[in-house]
């Protein structure tokens, strides 16, 4: 029963996301420019000092990060606004859990939003010469693992964003906390600098953090930085974080909801 309701919220927001075609086009062009800039930068760096990891892997990493940029970007400005004005209390009239409602929404926005941008961007990146664009996945199995990892990553990032929102509600200071958490996400998910280029010792820690589970983990499977044999472990780590983050999120929203009810909004 309930599942059906969440599924239809998901579907509705998927369709809504299709409406903003103009914004999608602008976003694609912007992300393309960023992709070109970053790939050029790493190529120039490689020209001076080649690395163990081939340049093709780095450029593939960059393009996949840019293509799925929408995933890490906080997507629900509507919700942020509602929290600021206190209108979130009105959502309590729905016979659904607030957490589930917004989880479905955010998941829909992030998945459809990144799908719309990723497909044309990856086609573009495929057309670029070798070492500039994106390379094919190392094997069909690796590609399958990548897709699976991406889906878990989507669930994981939606859970993360819900926690961000939950904390925001609690502190009544949307901008500060949200900006801080979003920035952490950008830096630790590999958007600013590929996590593969961090010092090796750091990588051991950073790849275990939840932020690395969004895109870094699946991308490593795609490029073969992590072998298919290691895939189950990587996917399991992703799934484990997703479960933990969802649990934390639900608990946080539950207690927020109690406070809302007590304070009367």
């Amino acid at each position: 029963m309930r599942t059906k309701a969440y599924a239809s919220i998901f579907r509705m927001n998927w369709k809504l996301e299709l409406q903003y075609r103009g914004a999608v086009l602008g976003g694609i062009i912007c992300q393309l420019v960023f992709g070109l800039i970053l790939v050029s930068l790493y190529r120039a760096l490689y020209a001076g000092r080649p690395q163990v990891m081939p340049i093709e892997t780095v450029s593939t990493y960059v393009w996949l990060q840019q293509a799925f940029f929408r995933m890490v970007l906080s997507s629900d400005s509507d919700l942020a606004g509602k929290i600021r004005t206190g209108d979130i209390a009105y959502d309590l009239v729905r016979p659904l859990s607030l957490y589930g409602y917004y989880y479905a929404r955010i998941l829909a926005q992030k998945s459809m939003g990144s799908l719309l941008r990723a497909v044309p961007m990856l086609v573009f990146a495929l057309c670029l010469p070798r070492g500039w664009g994106i390379m094919a996945p190392v094997s069909p199995a690796a590609f399958a693992c990548f897709l699976l990892g991406l889906m878990i990553g989507l669930c994981c990032v939606s859970a993360l964003e819900n926690i961000t929102m939950g904390i925001t509600m609690r502190t009544l200071d949307p901008k500060g906390i949200q900006a801080m958490l979003n920035l952490l996400m950008m830096i630790l998910s590999g958007n600013v600098l590929p996590l593969t280029l961090y010092p090796d010792a750091w990588q051991k820690v950073i790849t275990a953090l939840p932020y690395a589970q969004l895109l870094d983990a699946p991308i490593r499977l795609y490029t073969g930085t992590r072998q298919v044999a290691e895939a189950p472990g990587a996917l399991l780590l992703q799934a484990a974080w997703t479960v933990v983050l969802t649990g934390v999120g639900i608990a946080l929203w539950k207690s927020n909801q109690r406070r809302l009810v007590i304070q009367g909004g």
Binding site: G48, R49, G176, M180, L183, I187, V192, Y198
Partner: peptide, 29 residues
């Protein structure tokens, strides 16, 4: 105060990226 700290993390992160790049590559052209 929180937002000021957030800004520090952001720009600190950007600078960190340059430091890490220098750490790995030493030179750029």
């Amino acid at each position: 105060l929180l937002q000021t700290i957030a800004q520090l993390i952001m720009e600190g992160g950007e600078f960190l990226a340059v430091l890490l790049i220098v750490d790995r590559f030493d030179i750029l052209g």
